[in-house]
């Protein structure tokens, strides 16, 4: 036990909890994500239109599984991203 720990014990100071990420980072990330939705006022209708347009464009080049297509917002590396998961059935030649 290092000497500083002894001193801390003596003064009754709690040991710092080992944590992966301070809770304020969690707060900030959650806020940024929720604000993307709040700010853009993204309606269900708009997301649906986006989905349909995406399908129309991609369909020109490849056959996709339209039922499993998923479009959503996500946070990646400090920025907000639009993530589209589009399973491909077959490439058109």
């Amino acid at each position: 036990m290092p000497f500083s720990d002894l001193i801390n014990r003596f003064f009754g100071k709690e040991q710092p909890q080992p944590q992966n990420s301070p809770s304020k980072n969690v707060a900030k990330e959650r806020l940024q994500l929720v604000l993307v939705h709040d700010r853009s006022d993204v309606s269900e209708k708009m997301m649906e239109n986006l989905r349909e347009d995406l399908i129309a464009v991609i369909n020109k080049y490849m056959e996709i599984d339209q039922k499993s297509l998923d479009v959503s917002f996500s946070r990646e590396d400090g920025a907000v991203a639009l993530i589209a998961n589009i399973p491909i059935v077959r490439i058109k030649r």
């Binding site: 301070p22 304020k24 707060a27 900030k28 940024q32 604000l35």
Partner: peptide, 16 residues
């Protein structure tokens, strides 16, 4: 709490 990383700082809030 800000120093311990358990409360958003002024900078964090101004970023948002």
């Amino acid at each position: 709490m800000v120093q311990a990383g358990d409360m958003m700082s002024i900078e964090d809030i101004m970023d948002i």
